[in-house]
Design a protein around this nucleic acid. Structure first.
Lengths: 342, 342
DNA sequence: ATGCTTGGTTGGAACGTTCAACTGCACGCC
DNA sequence: GGCGTGCAGTTGAACGTTCCAACCAAGCAT
């Protein structure tokens, strides 16, 4: 059956192109997937036909045959109102971009907070995605193990905390280095009493960020006693922690485990009519839009999410090419964005 | 061929279930898609077999046969650093959630800023998605017309500005109502000289938001002359506009077309050692994380994005059930989140 | 009895692609 | 001449699902 290019209700198929070019279906398929198998003149003829009809392979059919969907699943963690976290937004963007360049699309699914694995199971069993990007790999999170048991392919954004035998590729950011940068920066500005406001002890990422502060302080011979606080990651916790520290330990600067906590510090400064960057220095973590836009600008540690996304996609490509692929585990360095608050 | 449930390299298929249940493939298919066609006892037997094997229909095969992927395409607009915009994040979340509940997944693709249509074309021709959600439908944006010409299904988030004959479903937010709420709120607090900082005249959304301010002022008999400013949507533009207005028109309150501009106002207040909410009132737009976390909290107009997502999914379902479906065009009301800045 | 419906189930075909095996054909080599 | 060898392209089958026409038994009216 022939088709008139302008007037079709249904997209053109391989067979349409084949007929127009006067070759077989398979030859068209080869022209698309293995052009070097064809003689130059045949290839040109087929490509002209493809062009003329505006042909693109049907994804469902291709996916059925090759058992590859070229989709990558990403679970969106629940949004937290009232925090400064715009991390995910930037990360998703970078991921979509780099994945797109590699021929993959990103499929989002919802994080049912009750059963975080439900969404994974669904997509996995219906063979909807080729692989997952797993973002929250904190200790005790069952996802990595669970996915491994189901032989699902995935790359973790976040190192396999406390699981040395983990055999999956991962990418993470050296956030201890980040808070070390932040602390050193403050020391260089002449501060000696630099306080830390971080997360509670059960957060491994929190402890890691804290270790950067400790390391920087110790290496310059500065005391840390009484200068640290561990709280929930909310603005109000940060505010109260800052107030308590100011009263008891009289720091001249704060390093925070997140921009949310840094905003808490700003609240306390606001209450006391102090000015960030003039009276007290403040450094945050994540380089969120909040840090970027609030006066006088919060100095903040910026995670290289674009780079992380690119490493993740690289690992995914390796994984999908060689199922037993195990990446080296990429550890990336964050950077300090200096603004008015320090 | 029989399969042992625990030890399979490949997911179970319809045929496996059929064999186990002692029925034909089609009967299993019916059990999944039209359960009421089966006799109760057969249905139970088939469902048991499905359960036992952990069967889920292969999406590619189903998609190939039914010509429906149950995927919805969403183009991620480029991120803007240095603005307070966290709109998209919340919207994407809500969309993923409500779409998921309706059996659809969201497929993200990248906005090549040079050719915004490239991504659409790709997905459309490869029949990868059933429909699109189009988010930037400002005047002169070719997407709506282009998609219509290709007979692509889509729902617009944003009314069809200046195109009365548009025949596609859309959902939008009555942002004039939002700035009217904001302005009235300030008037109720005793302000009479209320300034407007908005976007440049070629932004229709900007003009609409502005009209809410004008309407509220006029209806209370207040003058607007010299109290309005139209600038780029950046923090620095807002800062400069606020400074100029303060010098020339001496307003006691600002209503802004975005939280980004409101942050600009806060910068000017900071420069002049004035306090938002005490010396000068400030209201923003979008209820971003910035507005939520910055001291003393910025009063801001919150768009009902969850509701918008739900209306969009409703329209999508209508669209995909009846291809010629045209929704009524839902216009939603925003709400004012009052905080310390007013 | 015969024909007509109806509810439940079946087998074959089809969706559009790629895989694996195959067919011609030209070439070179003993 | 026979035989392998490699190139260019073809053919039939398969991926896993749903659509379609047909079938079968049972019920019911003729």
């Amino acid at each position: 059956m022939s088709r008139l290019p302008g007037r079709m209700s249904t997209p053109p198929t391989l067979a349409d192109v084949a007929e127009l070019a006067g070759v077989s279906r398979q030859t068209v398929s080869n022209a698309v997937n293995n052009p070097d198998l064809l003689r130059a003149d045949t290839l040109a003829r087929v490509q002209a036909a493809i062009e003329q009809l505006g042909y693109q392979p049907n994804r469902a059919a291709r996916s059925l045959r090759t058992r590859a969907s070229h989709l990558i699943g990403l679970r969106l963690p629940p949004v937290q109102e009232g925090t400064a976290n715009a991390l995910m937004d930037r990360f998703v963007h970078s991921l979509v971009e780099t994945a797109g360049a590699a021929g993959y699309h990103v499929l989002l699914f919802d994080g049912d907070s009750a059963d975080p694995l439900a969404g994974y199971d669904d997509l996995l069993r219906s063979t909807a995605v080729d692989a997952f990007v797993v973002t929250d790999t904190y200790l005790g999170n069952p996802q990595a193990q669970w996915l491994h048991a189901r032989r699902a392919q995935f790359v973790a954004f976040g190192r396999p905390w406390g699981n040395a035998e983990a055999r999956h590729p991962w990418v993470d950011i050296d956030s201890a280095h980040g808070s070390e940068l932040a602390t050193t920066h403050l020391i260089d500005r002449g501060h000696t009493r630099i306080a830390w406001i971080g997360w509670r002890k059960d957060s491994l990422v929190g402890e890691e960020r804290r270790s950067g502060w400790t390391r920087a302080m110790r290496s310059r011979g500065l005391a840390t006693t009484g200068l640290a606080s561990r709280v929930e990651d909310t603005v109000n916790s940060g505010r109260m922690a800052a107030a308590a520290l100011l009263d008891e330990a009289r720091p001249t600067a704060f390093v925070c485990a997140s921009d949310t906590l840094a905003m808490g510090v700003l609240h306390t400064l606001y209450d006391r009519r102090l000015r960030a960057g003039e009276d007290i220095a403040v450094v945050g973590f994540d380089d969120s839009q909040v840090a970027q836009t609030v006066p006088p600008g919060i100095t903040s540690v910026r995670q290289p999410l674009e780079e992380a996304a690119s490493e993740i996609v690289k690992a995914l490509e390796g994984l999908l090419a060689t199922p037993s692929y195990v990446g080296p585990g990429a550890m990336l360095k964050p950077a300090l964005m200096v603004r008015g608050s320090s």
